[in-house]
Write a protein that binds this DNA or RNA. Structure first.
Lengths: 197, 197, 197, 197
DNA sequence: CATGAATGAGTCTTCATTCAT
DNA sequence: GATGAATGAAGACTCATTCAT
């Protein structure tokens, strides 16, 4: 019974989360009403507030939970790859794969979550920083191993790589193309490795 | 007297526009009330609607008018520079300079304008495309002159460059640093030219 | 408890309906604010919208629900009367009695509901038609039985009778007299039966 | 110059009046904005207020001026007819003719002017009374001459006749038929003279 | 007289959130 | 935990009216 209850709870929580992603991605955060989400999740309006403090916190939860699974997913896999370049490429692929496999979630990430300076500063800044540090590490490894230029500013490069991934993702979301997003990984990789010359 | 009147009219429109930029950047688009803008612009609420159809259109106007002066500004200057690399660098500098000279406008551009997929698709997409085509041209010139690799996908590169500029700008806006944004231009230039190797 | 709850719900709806009738009749439809109605019904503004889609729909609801009880009320009673003239007289009396027993509702019916061609065409036309057909039937019965002239256009007569009732009702509403409205029934009856000659 | 100016004034006043009739009849009184009327009359918004105190007064003016020409029109003609029945018939015909010749004005009269108890009580009551007295006179003449029953309540009959005319008019306005409204006169006449028996 | 830009009070409606059941 | 009816604050937008020119 405990288990059943627990499952039931998780189930509801998850249903709400998923309904929110769907709603936010199709109607936008501000146009989405709690009622819409509740109805789609087949719970009462009030139930949403048993699991999430507010609409804003619901968006934050989508970010945090997706981010968590996002970060966990690749870690082991990435560490298994010895070669730095390959490791970096894998990182890019995983990023794009993760985003590319759920267009609705991607829309929320690439568009709806940018809706206010407040949200970006308070909610996502720390997580983003951690994520960037993961990339930075690989850059440093590359510098150490002589694969990458020693004079690279690894933090700047990490941000740059993120920028390229982010742009690709946003572009994919807005363009509504069916192309697989992760295919962009090699192009980006090539560009950042060789530059324009 | 004619002139004065005309100036006064423009003045009101401009005052509203500026008040909106200030308000949107500090409180966010959705938290800003028309009353806030009107009060700051020292006009009546209804006056806002003499110049702009709706709050949403006011945001669009900020985009369009800033974009226009943004695009006009550099064009001649850029064309005067012969060397492609220098021309590209100037482009980057102008972009960052333009954004970096008005933090409030920058905040609106980098954050508030991204608030909805709808806005990004409908309002800014065409202009952005045109802007990217400007960058693309320079890339092509570089390829033609042999300065840049012949196998570069100039459209992809243009988007990548924009991504880097955009990331730098957003970062600058959110970090609240006093550093001049345009100083990033050389770093970005170096990165895209030489790559990581 | 179930019952109490159910009653309470009905109660709220009814309270709003009654408050609306009072408000519309004393201030007119357009001058009445939802807040006025809500306050009088002792509910929150928003509650009005749980029961009615809009202010306009609230007026329509007053019409529909009053019309329903209005139509139901007399039907049996009327059918029990054999004599056509008496039946017609009863019809007139019921009409005027119904309207005459609630001056506020009457005001809404006779004045506020005529506020727009749109309302009259869309909302009340069908119901009115049905009502007129009820009168028409009696006329036909009178013709069949030889009590009324065979050359009467029963539809025209029905409309004429309605016109006289309607005029009496409006007159009563506007004159603010205390006379019982239904007393007009016999005068009208005499007039339509005998004519002026 | 006096004349020209005067004509010009009248012209503007009339243009506004006509524009108002058109607008009120098609959009309803409350949905019509002064701006709509001004634009249609090709004058500035403010000009409307040089000729009419308020939107409400503009409606009242339509009533009064139409009523005046309405009342004047038939008087002589009516008095020339000796026979009471014919005189009454002419009255009915003139009423319906007057209304039937301008559907837009008719709509304003039959629908828009009924929009509030206030308007009906304050603005139109006195004029209506005078109009009814005109009818009443004819009834009295009929009674005196023995053409009509001596026991008729002439005031009641006058109101009844008006009711039938009014109903016919409203019906015509709402039904959007092309039939000539004045053709109803004889039917009504027959009905009120002979009654139903 | 005429203009029409400017005003700002006014209101319907929405919707996140609460809480009695 | 779950419900969903009720709340009521909030705000975009309208438009009759004014008044400086």
């Amino acid at each position: 019974m405990d288990t059943a209850e627990c499952v039931d709870l998780n189930n509801k929580r998850e249903r709400i989360l998923n309904a929110a992603i769907k709603a936010f991605s199709s109607q936008g955060f501000y146009r989405t009403r709690i009622t819409d989400i509740a109805r789609a999740a087949k719970v009462a309006d009030g139930t949403v507030y048993l699991y999430f403090e507010s609409k804003e916190q619901l968006l934050a939860a989508i970010f945090n939970e997706s981010m968590k699974s996002f970060m966990d997913m690749g870690r082991k896999e990435v560490l298994e790859v010895e070669d730095v370049e390959e490791r970096l490429l894998l990182l890019l692929k995983l990023h794009l794969e993760n985003i590319g496999k759920d267009r609705e979630l991607a829309t929320v990430f690439q568009v709806e979550m940018r809706h206010s300076a407040h949200f970006m500063k308070e909610t996502s800044r720390a997580e983003l920083r951690e994520y960037l540090m993961g990339i930075q590490q690989v850059i440093e490894q590359g510098k150490d191993s002589g694969k990458f230029r020693a004079d690279l500013d690894s933090w700047f490069v990490a941000k740059s790589i993120f920028a390229l991934l982010d742009e690709a993702a946003t572009n994919w979301v807005l363009s509504e193309t069916d192309d697989a997003l992760e295919d962009e990984a090699t192009r980006i990789m090539d560009f950042i490795l060789r530059g324009m010359k």
